[in-house]
Amino acid sequence: MREQVARRTLEEHEQAREEEVTMSESQPDHPIYPPARPKTSPEELVRAKRARPIESLDDLAAPDVFESDEELEQFLAFTYAERRAHLG
């Protein structure tokens, strides 16, 4: 009697496992993750982008980002206030 119960329980477990596998094997119409890119070394990336070393802070300057000095001051005040607010 115990063998029959154990066998039936094992069969039920195996059947449930088969149903799980069948459900999880279905493929979506599109990939879940983006395809993997080939590994590229930093040197290869620099060559591909024709990057140059930064020689001066002027290289980083972006003229006309702010329309006025007042707009720049507002941005800086907001930035400093946010930093202080999140320091804890």
Rank of each mutant, 00 (worst) to 15 (best):
D64Y: 07
E71C: 01
A77I: 01
I54A: 04
P38Q: 06
A62H: 06
A36M: 11
V65K: 09
E43Q: 10
E20H: 07
R83I: 08
S56F: 01
S41L: 13
Y33A: 13
G88P: 00
D69V: 06
I32N: 02
E44L: 02
T79G: 06
P63G: 08
P35R: 05
A51G: 08
A61T: 07
S68V: 04
S26A: 06
E11W: 01
P63C: 06
R8V: 06
R2T: 02
E25C: 06
E19Q: 13
V65F: 11
E18W: 06
H13N: 01
S24E: 14
E25G: 09
R17L: 12
Y33C: 08
Y33K: 04
P28G: 04
D59H: 12
E55H: 04
E55A: 03
A62I: 11
A81M: 10
S41N: 01
A61I: 05
T79M: 08
R8C: 05
E19Y: 00
A36H: 09
G88C: 05
R37V: 12
H13W: 04
E70C: 02
I32M: 04
P42Y: 01
M23T: 13
Q74E: 15
R47I: 12
A6K: 07
E70K: 09
A36N: 09
A51P: 00
A36P: 01
E70H: 06
K49R: 13
P28M: 00
V5N: 09
A6V: 12
R84A: 12
L60E: 01
H30W: 13
E71M: 12
S26V: 08
E14H: 02
E19K: 10
E73Q: 12
I54C: 08
M23Q: 15
L45I: 14
F75H: 10
E20C: 08
P38V: 05
E73S: 10
V65D: 06
V46F: 07
K49M: 13
R2C: 02
E55F: 01
Q4S: 12
S56H: 05
A6H: 04
T9Y: 05
Y33V: 12
E55W: 01
M1Q: 12
R83P: 00
I32W: 05
S24F: 15
L87C: 14
I32E: 05
L10K: 08
P34V: 04
I54Q: 00
I54M: 02
L57N: 15
P31C: 04
I54T: 04
P34F: 01
A16T: 07
D69R: 08
V5E: 13
M23E: 15
E12M: 05
P34S: 03
L87S: 12
